[in-house]
Design a binder for these strands. Sequence first.
DNA 1: GTCTATATTACGATAGAC
DNA 2: GTCTATCGTAATATAGAC
Lengths: 205, 205
Amino acid sequence: MSAQSARRDSHTVQSLLAVAVGVFNVRGYDGTSMEDLAKAAGITKSSIYHHVAGKEELLRLAVTRALDGLFAVLDEPPAREGAAAARLEYVIRRTCAELIENLPYVTLLLRVRGNTAAEREALERRRDFDHRVAELMAEAIAEGDLRADLDPRLTSRLVFGLVNSLTEWYRPQEHGVGGNGGADHSAVADALVALVFDGVRNPAA
Amino acid sequence: MSAQSARRDSHTVQSLLAVAVGVFNVRGYDGTSMEDLAKAAGITKSSIYHHVAGKEELLRLAVTRALDGLFAVLDEPPAREGAAAARLEYVIRRTCAELIENLPYVTLLLRVRGNTAAEREALERRRDFDHRVAELMAEAIAEGDLRADLDPRLTSRLVFGLVNSLTEWYRPQEHGVGGNGGADHSAVADALVALVFDGVRNPAA
DNA sequence: GTCTATATTACGATAGAC
DNA sequence: GTCTATCGTAATATAGAC
């Protein structure tokens, strides 16, 4: 992977955003200068201002895209109908998929710290998401499918901390061979769901 | 919690480090200026240079402290003797405790991205830690105490992603009442170990 | 849509007095 | 150990030509 994208004749907001998110994830948002972005996009700093108002707008566009994808999962029918434990499993699995599908955007979202207005709005929407998952967890416990001794708030924090930690190491596979120990997209989601619901202990032991 | 510490007459490297790590964790390392640190420490920018060579040295001191604490866990006798599954459980529990004990330092460590030499060294030591835990996981699977279908590398990434995600929300309790849903230090470690080994599913269901 | 050139501010770091 | 004052650099952003 080169630190600099190939030069191109013309950019759109979306193509520029894709480049910017990649650089933000390598150098950090605050550690990235407009000059860094210009080099990576193959244009000059001032050309970037033709597409967006500034660095913060690129951040706002990126985290909004990530959040919209995550919230869409909660609105899908299988996340709204049936036993709470099944809905929870569905949300976990689909959130993993969404995270991997939109990896650079979600990665950036999860690293936001609240320094700017755009970041604080993103943090608030994340809290809302977490709250809705905690409610789902509480329902699944009340329905008896999850262990009764679980603290729903604590458990949902742990489970989504686990899901979100995928951004720390998961890298999409290229050319049929990847660096994730042979674990592709759905294999990771399967392993994660199995860990969450049944743990690592061997029942036969 | 005020964004600025109380003014004090004199600083040591350690007291300055504690202030700096707190600010780094709120604003991000790159988002923190020497002026921010000076205000938080109640002294001027130039006074900071009397104690340390610059901003990067504060970062290096902080992540070194965090890493030393984590590696010390691996050298404790219960992490080196007995069945691998029991050693693994010990390492998970003690790593949680170490993370909480040293929360600001470990939080900063886990957010480092590799922009500077100090950060790249820290990332390398983290990889070494992860590798040693993955070996422990593989032994526990080979000994039959963990499910045979587990991928040790993937599973150890998930488990330590889970442990590390504590830094995203855990806050130490103050005045006997905390904001962690009544879950104190060891209750969190207990819930995490229970989740990892046995999952959330109710066996009676 | 991109460029060169530049305004303006903020930053990390140093000099030297107390 | 801390201060005031300042240096040199790098940052965001704008103006105006092509």
